[in-house]
Design a protein around this nucleic acid. Structure first.
Length: 628
RNA sequence: GGCCCCGUAGCGUAGCGGCCUAACGCGCCACCCUGUCACGGUGGAGACCGUCGGUUCGAAUCCGAUCGGGGUCGCCA
């Protein structure tokens, strides 16, 4: 049995080149003849006696070569180097007393070699497979097939398989069917930039790779497939981050005849059960807390709060109203608020540390940061000037400051942080500070997966650059029934049936109940500035479909990469993707993307512009081409 | 697209105006070593400091551009 898989491994019994996996050997195999095969992990040559650690997908085992009894095998072994592919015939034996290795699962035994065959020699690898050295990202990607030999990466790939397998089994058990949808689709005007694919047979026309199978899955609902899912690849041509790749994988889900609650219940079951199977070491809340968007913004200043620690935000506007501190009074006059939170034990943060927080607040648009540190311990009562350190002590008495901190749940020994301004600003600033402090002070328990649902997102947000409304989730998201009139009168106030699954400060899944009526869809498109004719040009198939009896439906799409990264304890989703791309969306291994021949361009009727020609002349991407 | 950081032997780093004909660790090569498991010992090879241009008597070290990588903001419905 392979660890964690539960299925007997065929090749450990039936194979010819090996009879058992290296890592499967145990004391119970003592005395058995075996054939093992794998990569030379380490070699310890004692001149006479020689040890090799042999590695395959099941793990490591020590092989020992005795030159006196098996000269030929020892001869082969002495010529072997790191990463050679080696087959060894021998006998499993208990190690000599006192030489067992408790750190290895196979440490009680060793294979005494009688025969060794080099199946393939290997060049010295460009970086160590054995050690977790900090090889540069390019190196790792260029030789990804070597990087993936590392234990950590092999473990991540296996975990990913388990997650995907769990999902398929779970969805199947809930009567969902997996349906594949096209990769070559129609470009959409809203949302991320599309990856375009030129058409050879339709000169001047382009397909777009899907940003998600959104439209197809809704059309499947109209088609009567009332429970659909897909492990779907999605493509977005936007700038990358550690948690963003140009192509990524989603669990795409859609259900008909459901309301919000049905979708949330399904996803909660999925993640709770998945955690029990692949993430047993994590503690997971049950049930998952629910929070509206408005609550999340009020308590955490974020729509994806990390709830593993407190540092909750509080509104102190009323308490400071009428103060002589101009910064506060002016903000209040202008309709802003004073919000803040308390850092338990934060009185120990040095002045330099507090200044760094102030800088961070400024970088996020605040004009400053008001703070107060309270010395000692115990309740915030009867404070004297010596008990409080604060740049605003001229404007507030020690007891006034103490009362503010107390309102945030603080005590002596704590640090109070206050930001003033419009909500959008204070939310942003305090969210940043909150995450920074949690990080600095190690407040987030790494063994907790704090799942929660955030609901009731607004329908629209104002795009100041484009000077128009844009959809917060996407343009097929259903508004609250009672908010439909707001679509025209006050779009910013309209709530939507959009929801997110959030975990540890990350958005893990995002979904919504969809619009299934043509009229509502047209109204939403109007708010977005898409008039009837354009709407039909871009979404005619959707609008038409809605006229043929579209059932109420909704869905969600959890990110597989982020989910696996979460369970793997990885910060960067590249660590759970077999062949990821760099931040500039290139692949150092294959050299993609690269130029193509003039003939290929002609065939698809594409001409390069001056920028492209200059880039080629300047040698952009030639590195990769040369290496390929 | 903006800002910040990085680019020195196969790998990871040090050096940050002349003492660098570039140092250290790992790896590599050779020899020695019969119980190791990051084996050990001795010896050795290996980079002209991403690329281009400039400043300077003199540059790995300063400046500019460029390429590549990373972070971050914008962006990512």
């Amino acid at each position: 049995m392979r660890p964690g898989c539960g299925i007997p491994v065929a090749d450990s019994r039936c194979a010819v080149l090996k009879t058992i996996g290296c890592g499967e050997l145990r004391a119970e195999h003592a005395g058995q003849p075996v054939t093992v095969a794998g990569w030379v992990h380490r070699r310890r040559d004692h001149g006479g006696l020689l040890f090799l650690d042999l590695r395959d997908s099941t793990g490591l085992v020590q092989v020992v070569f005795h030159p006196e009894s098996e000269a030929a095998a020892a001869q082969v072994a002495s010529g072997v180097r790191a990463e050679y592919v080696l087959q060894v015939r021998g006998t499993v034996q208990p190690r000599l007393a006192g030489t067992e290795n408790a750190d290895m699962p196979t440490g009680a035994i060793e294979v005494v070699a009688s025969d060794a065959v080099i199946l393939n020699a290997a060049e010295t690898p460009p970086f160590s497979i054995v050690e977790e050295t900090n090889t540069s990202e390019v190196m790792r990607l260029k030789y990804r097939y070597l990087d993936l030999r590392r234990e950590r990466m092999a473990r991540n790939l296996r975990l990913r398989h388990q997650v995907v397998k769990f999902i398929r089994d779970f969805m199947d058990s809930r009567a969902f069917i997996e349906v594949e949808t096209p990769s070559l689709g129609l470009a959409t005007p809203e949302g991320a930039r599309d990856y375009l694919v030129p058409s050879r047979v339709h000169p001047g026309a382009f397909y777009a790779l899907p940003q998600s199978p959104q439209q197809y899955k809704q059309l499947l609902m109209v088609a009567g497939v009332d429970r659909y899912f897909q492990i779907a690849r999605c493509y977005r041509d936007e700038d990358l981050r550690g948690d963003r790749q140009p192509e990524f994988t989603q669990l795409d889900v859609e259900m008909a005849f459901v309301e919000e609650e049905d979708v949330l219940a399904l996803i909660e079951d999925l993640y709770a059960q998945m955690a029990a199977v692949v993430g047993a070491k994590f503690s997971v809340p049950s049930p998952f807390p629910r929070m509206t968007f408005a609550e999340a913004m009020e308590k955490y200043g974020s729509d994806k709060p990390d709830t593993r620690y407190g540092l909750e935000l509080h509104d102190l506007t009323e308490q400071v109203r009428g103060s002589e501190f101009q910064v506060f009074s002016r903000v209040i006059e202008e309709g802003g608020r004073i919000r803040g939170f308390v850092v338990p034990g934060g009185a120990d943060i040095a002045r330099r540390g507090v200044d760094a927080l102030t800088d961070l607040a400024r970088e996020n648009g605040a004009s400053g940061l008001v703070w107060a540190q309270f010395t000692g311990s115990g309740a915030l009562e009867g404070l004297s000037a010596d008990d409080v350190r604060s740049p605003v002590s001229r404007f507030f008495t020690p007891d006034q400051l103490g009362a503010l901190a107390a309102a945030c749940g603080g005590t002596r020994g704590d640090l109070l942080l206050l930001a003033a301004g419009p909500d959008a600003l204070t939310s942003r600033v305090l969210d940043t500070l909150r995450r920074k402090l949690a990080d600095d002070r190690g407040l987030a328990d790494p063994n907790t997966l704090a799942f929660l649902f955030v609901t009731q997102f607004p329908m629209f947000e104002w795009d100041a650059t484009e000077k128009r409304w844009s959809a917060v989730h996407h343009l097929f998201t259903a508004p609250f029934e009672e908010d439909v009139p707001l679509l025209e009168s006050d779009p910013g106030k309209a709530r939507s049936h959009a929801y997110d699954l959030v975990c540890n400060g990350q958005e893990i899944a995002s979904g919504s109940i969809r619009i299934h009526s043509r009229e509502t869809q047209l109204a939403v498109l109007r708010t977005l500035g898409i008039q009837f004719e354009e709407a039909y040009e871009k979404f005619g198939h959707m609008l038409d479909a809605f006229t043929f009896g579209a059932p109420p439906h909704g869905g969600i799409a959890p990110g597989i990469d982020r989910t696996v990264a979460l369970f793997a304890g990885e910060r960067d989703i590249r660590e759970v993707i077999a062949f990821p791309k760099t931040k500039s969306a290139s692949d150092p291994m294959t050299g993609a993307p690269a130029g193509v021949s003039a003939r290929q361009l002609q065939e698809v009727h594409v001409a390069l512009d001056a920028v492209a020609r200059d880039a080629i002349a300047a040698g952009a991407r030639v590195d990769a081409e040369e290496d390929a």
